[in-house]
Nucleic acid binder design. Structure first.
Length: 624
DNA sequence: TACTAAATAT
DNA sequence: GATATTTAGT
């Protein structure tokens, strides 16, 4: 595995502890272990060091209780950004804390005083991590390693939770493909067992192709290609050319295209369900989701179970980020305009009202999308139950972050990463900072979503089933419970892959009871350090937020852009519709019709767009 | 050769 | 059951 001969001698360890004494002791111990030790007494500094010196550290060992940043927070960020093994250190070793550490992704949890014996073996985490990451990129030909990683991952189940673990396991099974071949092939194998065996060993090319996982990024490219070519002219080969992804084959694309088309087909066939809210494309939804978590009860991707309803449509979107900067709403909408979607539709688009549907409401998802557009909706920000929030800034292009907070309660699990791209982060949004109509206005389109989260009006998640009922069907009992969301935090628990499936029911259960966990994002129980930093850096007036902390990945991808508008965040407000039902109904007479209309336009709109943005635009349409 | 639908596999 | 690969027909 490419480990130096002298490993772990010289292993680069970053030790973080606000207590100088402890830090010093720790440093000494680590040095005794012959590690290359770097120390800092501030978590923020540690993070900074890690960011600036990527690949300069092999492992992080951090105290839990630190004034500037909670150790768990640090852990989380490191996990997300660096994928480095992190060992938590604390004077308290109670089960709860340890569990919290583990859930946050700590690969180990040591209690003070730390013994050198414990430190002598911490290098194993580095090795393990390397194996795991290697495994991720693995192909079938590297089956042995996969298998190994699988085992390791298994051991670290608690640490990696579903995500990586399942990945590893999947790879493992890939390696095991000795498998049953189809009937014909089966017969053949029975007759020519040895021969086949030999062939496998001698001609790896005969082996089955490693299973390709269409992660968000890949799918995004796929969609971009389709958008570029136009759905009618999007053939595998051309898509392949456009995507320009190494290792990707035409067959892969053909297969994916097949699925994609099926999805579209379904959308068309079930306009009320799927088309209405958007396309059936899970990945797209994912993209749109980006930035916020979708509370999804369904195993794995929301899309899987609920193709179109998914998050995208139901949740407001956070504006996310990096790629979007400079891309204003109008850009996103323009394609739609050009399609002459009637005003009603546009209105719909304009308002991304997050509505919560009762679990029983399976028929009309959209009911209650209050709309107002283009200045028709005055910035009634904080005035009354319905604050006006700009939302829908845009569907962001890349999945940036999620807040594990929600799942965190009750030890729910969230996948740590989605194919390495999806991340979890926190987005405490201060309601007051939410409204951002002016900015949107500049874009000619006021994407405002009415929400009644503003001011002191708490959003009541209780009685109303919150998250897409359609989603919910069999599995997801996603109900938000009472909780005062003074700060509208967009929380969407981004679930992904089947890997999550196993746990997700339990998670759902938990979620149903803890939707109000927004506040509990922080391990400390306060609104989280992030929240504080938001408060400090994000003046309401500026409507900008320093996301360096909030969304590390953003910082990562575009370091120059520390700030970006938060307009979307605000927009993501979950709203209980039941209480507003009447209002909504009055607002729309036939939302379904509108949605159908939009859906029809959707396809056309796609063609008009170019690049990723368009893609997003597509999304916008679909999410309505 | 390339596309797609259907069959298989995981 | 969903998703990906492989096969087979065009």
């Amino acid at each position: 595995m490419g480990v130096e001969d002298r490993f772990p001698v010289g292993m680069r360890v970053l030790a973080v502890d606000d207590d100088e004494t402890c830090l010093s002791v720790l440093e000494n111990l680590l040095r005794k272990c012959q590690y290359n030790v770097t120390t800092t007494n501030q978590a923020i500094k540690a993070l900074d060091m890690l960011r600036k010196n990527r690949n300069k550290f092999d492992l992080v060992i951090s105290d839990v209780n630190m004034p500037d940043m909670d150790g768990f927070k640090l852990l989380e960020l490191v996990e997300l950004e660096m994928d480095l093994p992190v060992i938590m250190l604390s004077g308290y070793g109670d089960k709860e804390r340890v569990m919290r550490g583990v859930i946050h992704g700590a690969c180990d949890y040591l209690t003070k005083p730390v013994r050198i014996e414990e430190l002598q073996n911490i290098w194993q985490h580095v090795v393990r991590r390397r194996i795991d990451s290697k495994d991720k990129n693995k192909t079938a030909s590297e089956g042995k390693a996969c298998s190994m990683a699988g085992k390791l991952a298994n051991e670290e189940k608690a640490c990696y939770m579903a995500g990586e673990c399942s990945q590893a396991m999947a790879s493992k099974s890939n390696a095991d493909q000795n498998i049953k071949l189809g009937q014909k092939r089966k017969e053949q194998s029975e007759d020519e067992e040895e021969e086949e065996y030999d062939q496998e060993n001698e001609e790896p090319s005969n082996q089955k192709k490693p299973r390709l996982v269409w992660d968000a990024e890949l799918h995004r490219k796929f969609l971009a290609a389709i958008n570029h070519l136009g759905i009618d002219k999007a053939f595998p080969k051309r898509i392949l050319d456009l995507m320009n992804v190494e290792g990707l084959t035409r067959e892969n694309i053909a297969s994916h295209l097949q699925k994609y088309r099926l999805g579209l087909k379904k959308s068309t066939q079930q306009p009320s369900m799927v088309a209405t809210l958007g396309n059936s494309d899970p990945y797209q939804q994912m993209d749109s989701i980006e930035g916020f978590r979708t509370l999804s009860g369904s195993g794995g991707m929301i899309s899987t179970t609920l193709p179109s309803y998914a998050s995208g449509g139901l949740f407001c979107r956070l504006n996310s980020p990096s790629g979007l900067r400079g891309i204003n709403s109008s850009l996103l909408v323009q394609p739609v305009h050009s399609q002459n979607i009637d005003s009603r539709s546009i209105k719909t688009l304009g308002n991304m009202q997050l509505s919560m549907f009762s679990a029983n409401q399976t028929s009309s998802l959209l009911q209650g999308i209050p709309t107002s557009i283009d200045g028709n909706s005055p910035p009634t920000h904080n005035s009354g139950a319905f604050g006006n929030h700009s939302s829908l800034g845009a569907a962001s292009v890349k999945t940036q972050s999620f807040d594990p907070g929600i799942c965190e309660l009750g030890y729910n699990r969230c996948n740590k990463s989605w194919q390495g791209t999806t991340q979890i982060s926190k987005f405490p949004a201060n309601t007051s900072a939410v409204s951002n109509n002016d900015q949107l206005a500049q874009n000619n389109l006021n994407f405002s979503s009415s929400t009644f989260c503003s001011g002191n009006s708490p959003v009541d998640f209780s009685s109303t089933s919150v998250v897409a009922p359609p989603l919910e069907d069999a599995r997801g009992k996603l109900r938000c419970q009472e909780g005062l969301l003074e700060n509208i935090l967009l929380t969407s628990c981004y679930t992904q892959h089947q890997s999550w499936e196993a746990d997700n029911r339990g998670c759902n259960k938990e979620m149903s009871q803890t939707f109000n966990t927004i506040k509990s994002v922080s391990p400390n129980g306060d609104t989280s350090s992030l929240g504080h930093s938001l408060d400090q850096n994000n003046t309401v007036s500026s409507k900008r937020i320093d996301v360096s902390l909030v969304n590390p990945s953003v910082t990562q991808s575009s370091e120059d852009e520390k700030f970006y508008s938060m307009e979307s965040i605000d927009g993501c407000i979950l709203q209980s519709m039941e209480s507003q039902e009447d209002l909504m109904q009055n607002t729309f007479e036939s939302l379904d019709d509108i949605m159908s209309e939009i859906t029809k336009q959707e396809q056309n709109a796609i063609m008009l767009m170019d690049g990723e943005m368009e893609f997003d635009a597509y999304h916008v349409g679909s999410c309505i």
